[in-house]
Every structure is written in C-alpha cells, then in structure tokens.
C-alpha cells in the first residue's frame, strides 16, 4: 500500500508569552497508507489535536512537511490549498459545537459544496440527499431542521455527512465518539466503518479510548508529550507493546469485565510534566520504570525494530 499522507518532522509550537512555548508536537514523522485506518492515541495535552489541525494547515505548523496525495501542503498557497482541501476533511469531538446553530441541516451539509464551487443547485440537492441517506438521516425529516433539535449522536451523523459530501480521500476524526452517550457510540463507530468501506476512505482516527481505537484501527501510533513513542499494527501493539509508555497505557485500561485483574502500569508516581517545559532526552523518563541516565541525555529516535514496527526508546520491551 502506498502512503496517502506522509507527515515529516512535523513541529507545532504555541507561544505563551515571555519567550516561552508549548511544545505541542515535536519532530513527528508518520504516514497513513491508502485505505487504512491509523489510530492515534495519547493523553490529553499529548498533541493529538494539534497534529490533526496542523495537517489541515489550521494553522500551518512551525516546521516539517505534510505530503498529501504527493503535494506538500505546507508549501501550497491559499488557492492551491483550497483546491486540495475537499479531499481532506475533519470530524470533531463536540458535534453540536462544530455545527453552525443558525443554519438548517441541509445548508450545513451543502456548504462545502458551495465553497468548492458546485454552482448547480439541483446538483447540490442531489448530493446532499444522497449523503444524508448514506449516514442514516431521512432527508425529508431533517432537511429544514436546525442542529439544536438533534441529539449528540444525530449531530455527529450530520457532521459526518458534511465531511463526506465532497468525496474526500482522507478524513481526520478527532475524538468522534468521546462526547457521545455510551449507548450511541457503537452506532457511530459502525457508521464510520461502513462509510470507509463504501467510499474507499482513509481515516486518521484520534481517540483516548483504547478499546475504541483497537476496534477501528489497522495500525496505531502512540504519542506522549508531543513526541511519537511507538507505531505498530494494532494487534502487536495491544498484545506486545514495545514502548514502556504504551505498556503503561495498556495496563491502565479499565476493562468492562470484573474477572480481568487490574494491570500494573509500573509508572513512577507523579503527574505528566508540562508541555511548556518537557523533560530533556526522553520525555517519558520522569514516569518511566526503566529510565537510565542515557534517557536524560539523548532523545531516543524513532527506529524500526521489526517490519512495520517502530519505537522511540533506548531500551524497548520488545525487539
């Protein structure tokens, strides 16, 4: 499979005054293959959403390249970027907040068509109806209604329809089910899986719920404090994590089964450090049970330990 998206040495920093910066994403290199779902996990503040927004140049990253369908988006000007944008869409965590409350559902879904220059109204109506039906919304019932009349799950369907209407090749889903009721999540996950198959989509799926990530992802990348820890196919990552942080995450999963004993994260006590002042060397070293002096001095580079498996650790648990 070829890469649909290749992120190279991506760096995102936010100035916070006094010459200080939040190191949100630091030197991340990662690719998404045509037709796959790549899961991206990490704790809050690990830089997942910053990475997602930087891909879409919202705003452009401080450094690095974003190769999408062969073009470096960071080098494109406004007009060229607008020409690519229909192929690259995003779905957000809070479905209600992500939809314009003043607009009718049909207008919300049609808006990307107008922006991208589909001027024929009949053509727009046809495409909006088709995409509504695809996501399980009855066009005749929802057409003239507004977002506040819908539940979170229905709003997420509307957001998915809007993302699909331009027939994108890649959709970045940033925590698409975390704000939804537990009994609704499975519906939306199934819908995303169906849409992916039906429209041949590639997905970058960001979430902190590891069971959800395992369920949808072919491969998974783990981030900690702005850096990648590990990239692997989902089965290997969940059964034999190579990075100590991945292992801690796996052990911390609260499994909905009282007979599964609580795992031992082996973490050193203490909270995650601030991305304003990340530790030198390996950023995980302040909590890592395997840290050695070398971890303070040297940043562990992301390196291949087996075909399709990369890890950024001086002393990986596997390989």
């Amino acid at each position: 499979m070829s890469d649909l998206l290749a992120i190279q040495n991506l760096t995102v920093e936010y100035p916070v005054g006094g010459g200080r910066h939040v190191h949100a994403v630091s030197d991340v290199t990662l690719s998404v293959k045509q037709g796959e779902t790549l899961g991206l996990v990490g704790e809050s503040g690990s830089g997942k959403s910053s990475l997602a927004r930087a891909l879409l140049q919202l705003p452009p990253p401080k450094g690095g390249a974003v190769l999408f369908e062969g073009q470096d988006l960071t080098k494109l000007g406004g007009k060229a970027l607008r020409a690519v944008r229909p192929r690259l869409q995003m779905i957000f965590q809070d479905p209600i907040a992500s939809l314009n409350p003043r607009r009718k559902v049909a207008e919300i879904i049609a808006e990307p068509l107008i922006v991208s220059g589909v001027s024929d109204a009949a053509e727009r109506t046809r495409r909006v109806r088709a995409v509504m039906e695809a996501v399980g919304l009855d066009p005749d019932l929802v057409w003239n209604r507004r977002p506040h009349e819908f539940s979170g799950g229905q709003c997420q369907r509307i957001a998915i329809a809007r993302a699909l209407v331009l027939e994108p090749s890649l959709i970045v889903c940033d925590e698409p089910v975390s704000a939804l009721d537990v009994s609704i999540r499975a519906q939306i996950i199934n819908l995303l899986e169906d849409m992916k198959a039906r429209f041949g989509l590639t997905l970058l799926f960001i979430a902190h719920d590891l069971a959800v990530v395992k369920s949808v992802s072919d491969r998974v990348a783990v981030m900690y404090l702005g850096r990648l820890c590990e990239v692997a196919d989902s089965e290997s990552l969940f059964t034999t994590p190579a990075h100590p942080y991945t292992a801690a995450l796996m052990a911390a999963i609260p499994e909905p089964d009282p007979d599964v004993p609580l795992g031992d994260t082996k973490l050193k006590p203490g909270d995650p450090p601030s991305p304003l002042d990340p530790p030198s060397g390996c950023r995980f070293r302040t909590r890592c049970p395997h840290a050695q002096p070398r971890c303070t001095d040297e940043v562990p580079p992301l390196r291949q330990i087996a075909p399709g498996r990369e890890v950024a650790c001086h002393f990986p648990l596997v390989g």
Binding site: E193, A211, S215, S234, I253
Partner: peptide
C-alpha cells in the same frame, strides 16, 4: 455494544438502535 480488546480489529459492534 462495547468494543472488546479481545476482538480483532473491524469486528462489527452490536449497536443499540435509537437513543
């Protein structure tokens, strides 16, 4: 309806209809 870590990737979830 819960995704299970023991299930292979892309196992279809048994969703609850409605809300």
């Amino acid at each position: 309806s819960l995704p299970r870590l023991t299930d292979p990737t892309h196992t279809r979830l048994s969703a609850i209809p409605g809300r």
